[in-house]
């Protein structure tokens, strides 16, 4: 059964058909939520909420990329969670220094002290650096750059998912990439040599 048939069955109320769609997109949805919220538990909740919302609103799906439609549900759920966080701020992103209880602004805290194989360390360091830089972006820029550069959606899909025109997507993506470039250049030692910024790509 292909995706179109599954969607049709799900719209008719077939929960099994919908769950097959969930299995297809749950990883992408969870990763988008995680990159948006930077918290495993919150990402888990947001993903579950987004799929429940998607099932309840299946009739509003008007064709096109179902992947983009699901990502729209996830994005909206994440925006709701971020708004809730703004209303009730809790814990700062950076840890507090033990000496003076002030936030550590240097990215040195990102370094992992545990011993591990070189490639694992490389990946972990890279992920921490990327996560740190992505979290520094405005929420709208964050959603666009994650969907395009991390998850590989095209511009039209992201336009559908965010409900913004194509020109806005292009503009936000360019500015997000520029900021990320500047941010990642501060992590030269954490980034594999092949990707180091300022060096020519062959």
């Amino acid at each position: 059964m292909d995706e179109t048939e599954l969607i049709h069955e799900a719209i008719q109320g077939d929960l099994t058909a919908f769950n097959r769609l969930v299995l297809t997109y749950q990883e992408m949805a969870f990763n988008l939520a995680y990159r948006m919220l930077n918290d495993d538990d919150a990402a888990e909740d947001a993903t579950q909420t987004a799929f429940i919302s998607a099932y309840k609103n299946l009739r509003s799906y008007r064709g096109g990329s179902f992947r983009a439609w699901v990502m729209r549900m996830v994005t909206n759920t994440c925006y709701d969670e971020l708004r809730r966080r703004h209303r009730r701020p809790t814990v700062p992103l950076e840890p507090l220094s033990a000496e003076d209880d002030e936030e550590i602004e240097s990215p040195s805290w990102l370094a992992d002290d545990s011993a591990s194989p070189e490639d694992q360390v490389e990946n972990k360091e890279l992920e921490k650096a990327i996560t740190h830089c992505i979290q520094g972006l405005p929420e709208d820029f964050r959603a666009v750059v994650v969907m395009i550069d991390v998850q590989g959606l095209d511009y039209a899909e992201v336009s559908d998912a965010t409900g913004k025109p194509l020109g806005t997507i292009k503009s936000r993506l360019a500015r997000a990439r520029l900021r990320l470039r500047d941010c990642l250049s501060g992590f030269r030692e954490l980034i594999p040599s092949f990707f180091r910024l300022g060096e020519e790509v062959i």
């Binding site: 990883e27 990763n31 429940i52 890279l126 990327i130 990439r177 910024l197």
Partner: peptide
């Protein structure tokens, strides 16, 4: 352009996180 290309490549290498559990729905 090279700076943007490298940025895009780094982001594309972002490790994919495994889902903690299936998000299938029940009745």
């Amino acid at each position: 352009l090279n700076g943007l290309r490298r940025t895009k490549m780094i982001l594309h290498r972002t490790p994919v996180r495994k889902v903690p559990h299936n998000f299938t729905l029940t009745a």
